[in-house]
Design a protein around this nucleic acid. Structure first.
Lengths: 255, 255
DNA sequence: GTCTATACCACGATAGAC
DNA sequence: GTCTATCGTGGTATAGAC
C-alpha cells in the first residue's frame, strides 16, 4: 500500500549472492570455462541489462545471449522473467531496509533533537537511499531510475511482494512519524506520507537526479547531508502543516 | 520536463470528436450497419479498453475485435498503437489545459487573496482535474489511473509530445508560483513544483483515490473544494517552507 | 539435476490483393 | 478503405540429451 519500499538499497548484497552461487559446487564444466555457474551468469547479465535498458526493454533472449546460456535456462533457474526481476529487487532492497530500521532504532535510543524530530526521521529514511544515488560503482543512478520505474508500473506480483516483505519496517517509520506529529489524524498522516514518499522516489528516479543533486552545491556533491538538509525542511513543512483553517477554505471557495 | 501535463482533462472533448467523425461522409455500408465509421468505432473501443485494462494490457486484437473491425484498420487509420494512445491523451488533456489557463487568467485579473495566494494557484491548477476524478459518467477515476500510469512510464514519444504541447501553460503557472514565492531560487522552486505535481498525480492515479476522497468528509464527497481545502494547505506549506537553517543542518549532521 | 533444441502462442506491424 | 496473409519478436513450456 504505502510506497516505503521504493527507495533502493545498498549495492553490496548482490555481490555476496554471486559469491555464494559461485562457491556452490553444483557446476563443473561450464564453470571452469566461464568462472561462473549458469545461474550466476544469468543474474549478472540480467542486472547489467535491466539497469541499462529497463525491465521491458530487456528480452530473455538478450539476457541469455549476453550470459552465454540457453534461452530455457532462465525459466528453469528462476521460473519467469518476473521472478528474476523480483529477486534482483530484493537483493537490493533487503539490506537497505535493514539499514534503515537499524538507524531508526539507534536514533530512538539516542533520543531525537526536540526541534527537528520530523526532519531526523526523514533523514533516517533517506540517507541510505541517497547514498546509492551516487554509488556509480554499482550503477547507482541507473538503479534509482530502474527502481523508480518498477515502483511506478509494477505488476501486482512485484508490488505485493515488496509491500509484504517490508511491512514491518514501514510500520515502524509510520509510528515514528505519528509520534512526532500528534496533531495529524491517522488518515491525514497516511496520505501525507504517501505524497512525500511518492514524490521522493519519483524525483530520485527522474532523469535529472544529477542536476538536482549537483545544482545545490557543486562543491559538496558527495555530501549526502547537504542534499538532505535541502530536502528535509521542505518535506518536514509539508508534514507539519496544520489542517485547513476556515480562512483558507473561504479563500478557495471564491474560485 | 516538469510534469504539469499529468493531471487529466475534462471528459467532454472526446464526444465532440466522435460526433465529427460520425458526421464525416466518408463511410457508407459499415456505418449504416453500426451507426459509426470504422475509425470512430476503433476510438470508442480503444478508450473503453484502455481505461479498463491500461495501455499495455490492451492488445490491438482486443480493440479490433471489440470494435468489429479488421486488425489492420488500427494501423491504417492511426498509424500505430502508440499514436492512437497519444490521440486519446490529447483529446482529454487539451480542454483541461485550456480550462486551467483560463482560470489562472481570471484569477490574476481579479486579484489574489493576499494570505492564500499559493493555495489559490494550486486550486486553479487542480480543480479541473479533481472534478474529473468524480466524473464516473465518462470513466473518471479509471482515467485518472490511466493517465497516472501513462505519465509514470511513457514512451519518449508521448512524453515529449505532452511536454511540448502544454509548455506555454506550464510556464504561466511556474511564473505565477514564482511571483508568489519570491524567497525561492529558480532551481528550488522548480524542484518543489516537480515534487508536488508528481505526488498529486501519483496520488490521484493510485488505487485508493476514492478512499482519499471519501475519507475526508463522507458527507461532502461531491464537493471538490472540500478535497482541495484538504490538499492545499499541505502542498502550500511545502512550497512556502524556508530553506534550511543552520540549526537544521546541525541536527541532521548528528546522524 | 542441468542443459539444450525446439515448438507454441500472442503481440504489433506491414505488403499487397481486392 | 478494407482485408488476408505473413513477418519478426516476445515470454513460455516441454521433451529429451547429458
Amino acid at each position: 500500500m504505502s510506497p516505503f519500499e521504493n527507495l533502493i538499497s545498498p549495492s553490496t548484497g548482490f555481490t555476496r549472492d554471486i559469491a555464494a552461487l559461485t562457491a556452490a559446487g553444483s557446476t563443473t564444466a561450464n564453470e571452469a570455462r566461464t568462472k561462473l555457474s549458469t545461474k550466476a551468469r544469468i543474474l549478472h547479465a540480467t542486472e547489467s541489462l535491466f539497469l541499462q535498458r529497463g525491465y521491458e526493454g530487456t528480452s530473455l533472449r538478450a539476457i541469455t545471449t549476453e550470459a552465454n546460456v540457453n534461452l530455457a535456462a532462465v525459466n528453469y533457474h528462476y521460473g519467469s522473467k518476473e521472478e528474476l526481476f523480483a529477486l534482483l529487487l530484493q537483493e537490493r532492497l533487503d539490506p537497505l531496509n535493514a539499514d534503515r530500521a537499524k538507524r531508526l532504532e539507534a536514533l530512538q535510543a539516542k533520543g531525537f533533537d526536540r526541534e527537528h524530530r520530523v526532519e531526523q526521521i526523514i533523514a533516517t529514511l533517506f540517507l541510505p537511499a541517497l547514498a546509492l544515488a551516487r554509488d556509480t560503482d554499482q550503477g547507482g543512478p541507473d538503479f534509482l531510475r530502474f527502481i523508480g520505474r518498477a515502483y511506478a508500473d509494477p505488476s501486482d506480483f512485484v508490488r505485493n511482494l515488496l509491500a509484504e516483505r517490508y511491512a514491518k519496517t514501514n510500520l515502524k517509520f509510520k509510528q515514528a512519524f505519528a509520534e512526532a506529529l500528534p496533531h495529524l489524524s491517522e488518515h491525514d498522516l497516511a496520505m501525507r506520507l504517501n505524497f512525500i514518499l511518492d514524490a521522493v522516489s519519483s524525483t530520485l528516479a527522474s532523469e535529472d537526479v544529477r542536476r538536482v543533486i549537483g545544482g545545490i552545491q557543486p562543491s559538496a556533491v558527495n555530501d549526502d547531508t547537504t542534499l538532505l538538509a535541502y530536502l528535509a525542511p521542505f518535506l518536514g513543512a509539508a508534514l507539519r502543516a496544520n489542517v485547513r483553517t476556515a480562512a483558507q477554505i473561504a479563500a478557495l471557495q471564491t474560485l
